[in-house]
Design a protein around this nucleic acid. Structure first.
Length: 214
DNA sequence: CGCCAGGGCCATA
DNA sequence: TATGGCCATGGC
């Protein structure tokens, strides 16, 4: 890895500041959002979340029949699988009495293994939950992260390898991981394929593809 | 109309 | 290990 990830973060933070992610009002809403946003535009997730009328709790989902749940999350797409996923991840959370403080007392490596064994929870979703719902220092890698490094000519890497690169260059700090990933996503939305010109992208001058071809 | 979005599962080789 | 098909809505 030839590029300086700390420098990249300084550029991003200088422009976007502290974004206070994840946009949710409880750890459980982070969990639900993390599942619903799998390969899905966040605006569609918002439509699904709005169908809960501000009352999205684990006990609600636990007791809701699958047909009702499916109709509520329909706008987020893939609603058949995601209904199943929400049921299984909620069942996982129940082992900790739906209590974030109880989860936070566990070992993060064991929690990560548990989450990855839950159907529907892959690496990115697991790390999103660990970092954004519970504050564990797990760097989240996603499609925007891959594209960002591709812009700098970095070779493609597998999820765990790329995550290890970030965590080896950065101090082990959940607040830092939190805002770094948030900045990558916001920057990616400004800079993505639909907006071929970088605009105010802070990385513009360093980008090897300034016309936004990535 | 076609492409894409803050993935993950599963079958196959 | 590593591809490829599949899942589904809504914005553009």
């Amino acid at each position: 890895m030839s590029i300086d990830l700390i420098h990249i973060y300084e550029l991003l933070r200088n422009r976007y500041g502290d974004l206070n992610w994840w946009p949710a009002k409880s750890p459980y809403e982070v969990i639900v959002g993390a599942v619903l946003t799998q390969n899905t535009n966040w605006s569609n997730v918002e439509k699904a979340l709005a169908n809960f009328d501000g009352d999205l709790s684990p006990t609600l989902v636990e007791n809701m029949d699958e047909t009702t749940l499916r109709e509520k999350i329909r706008p987020a797409g893939f609603f058949n699988q995601k209904t199943d996923y929400l049921k299984t991840i909620t069942d996982w959370y129940k082992k900790y009495s739906y209590d974030p403080e109880t989860v936070k007392k566990q070992y993060q490596t064991r929690l990560r293994g548990e989450l990855l064994s839950v159907k529907g929870i892959g690496r990115e979703t697991a790390d999103s939950i660990l970092l954004y719902a519970f504050g564990f220092p797990e760097f989240v890698v996603d499609a925007y992260t891959m594209r960002l490094l591709a812009r700098f000519g970095e070779p493609e890497r597998k999820y765990e390898d790329l995550k290890a690169v970030f965590q080896s260059q950065l101090p082990k700090d959940a607040a830092l991981y939190n805002n770094y990933h948030a900045c990558i996503v916001i920057n990616g939305k400004e800079h993505c394929r639909k907006k071929p010109v970088c605009g105010g992208c802070p990385l513009h001058g360093m980008c090897p593809y300034p016309k936004g071809t990535v």
